[in-house]
Amino acid sequence: MPDSAGPSDSRAQQLRDSLDAVEQRVASACDAAGRHRSELTLVVVTKYFPAGDIERLATLGVRDIGENRHQEASDKIAELAPATRQDLRTHFIGQLQSNKAGAVAAYADVVQSVDRAKVARALDRGAEREGRLVDVTVQVDLAGDDAGRGGAAPADVLALAATIEGCASLRLRGLMAVAPLGADPAEAFERLHRTHEDLIADHPGATWISAGMSGDLEQAVAAGATHLRVGSAILGSRPALR
């Protein structure tokens, strides 16, 4: 590994401090919403950051990480110590093309960004080939025209969920969404919550709502999110490309 991942190095202390600050924000948001901290899973988004940071986060108790680019994620997961990898749950959160889905199934424990039946079927084939069961959330497009971020239209969610339920190597867990740029995140997450109510009426086990990032996690907690995807507030600004 190119950089030290020892628990006493300065980067580890930086991560500890920022992780503590985010945990305080989550706890305060839970108090304000009348919820228990145990209802939420914090997914630390490690995209663009090295495997050494994942090792450091693991020593701080982080068990869920998020990646959004296949090649980067695959390479970093391969770098991790076996004990670290065994204890981690890797969430793939980026836009996923059907031609990469099978490869992602080899290392991702959760794929949060399934937005088309073609992607679901390709992911299912890859998971079956690897002998794995992959947890899946349907990504919902809350903007209607936000093609750059992906997502299924709310009206298409139930049909896509049914497709996923029919895949032997996938397990439907719930919904994921990103608040549209420039929109009120509280209003966006309330719409996601309503879409989720429709989903669990047909799929009662699909209890996850993945919503909220560094800038809007409080609004997501208030709207019933079960998973928060937080990157820059913990790891800092994106490192310079080398």
Rank of each mutant, 00 (worst) to 15 (best):
V138F: 02
P82S: 00
L40H: 02
V157L: 05
E187Q: 13
G148N: 13
I164W: 05
A21L: 09
V157R: 10
G144K: 04
L158C: 12
V43I: 13
P185Y: 02
V178Y: 11
Q86N: 13
H193E: 06
A51M: 04
K100T: 06
L42T: 13
I234L: 13
G174M: 11
E79G: 11
G148D: 14
R11D: 10
S169Y: 07
Q14E: 15
D115E: 12
D115K: 06
E197R: 12
P239M: 06
G174S: 08
A201Y: 03
S113A: 05
E128F: 02
D216R: 10
T226Y: 00
A108M: 09
A78C: 09
G34M: 01
R242I: 14
S4W: 01
A120T: 06
K118H: 06
M176E: 01
T46L: 03
V140P: 14
L15Y: 03
H91P: 15
K100C: 00
T41M: 07
A108R: 04
A101S: 00
D135W: 08
T59K: 00
G66Y: 01
A225G: 02
D20K: 11
E39S: 13
G182F: 08
I164D: 08
R116W: 01
D135V: 12
R69I: 08
R149E: 14
L170G: 12
E23M: 03
G151Y: 07
A51R: 04
R63E: 15
H70I: 12
S214E: 10
A162K: 10
T137D: 13
V157F: 05
T195E: 05
P82Q: 09
D124P: 09
S98G: 01
A147C: 12
V22H: 08
E72A: 06
V62L: 06
R35N: 05
Q95D: 12
D17W: 07
V136D: 14
A81I: 01
R129F: 00
S10P: 10
G224W: 01
Q219W: 02
A188Y: 10
H36E: 14
A73L: 05
A159Y: 09
I209A: 00
A223D: 07
L228M: 09
A103D: 15
D109S: 13
E130F: 03
G236H: 09
R242N: 15
V45G: 07
A155T: 15
R171T: 13
A32R: 15
V134W: 06
G215K: 03
K76T: 04
A122R: 03
A201M: 08
G166K: 02
V140S: 05
E130W: 01
A177K: 06
G126N: 04
A122C: 06
R229I: 07
S169L: 09
S28V: 09
A117N: 05
A101C: 03
Q95I: 11
A162Q: 13
A240C: 07
A220Q: 00
H203D: 03
G174W: 04
H227Q: 14
H203S: 01
L60D: 07
G144A: 02
H196N: 06
L123W: 01
T59P: 09
L181G: 05
I77E: 02
L123Y: 00
A29T: 07
D124N: 15
T59E: 00
A81T: 07
Q14P: 00
A33I: 09
Y107A: 01
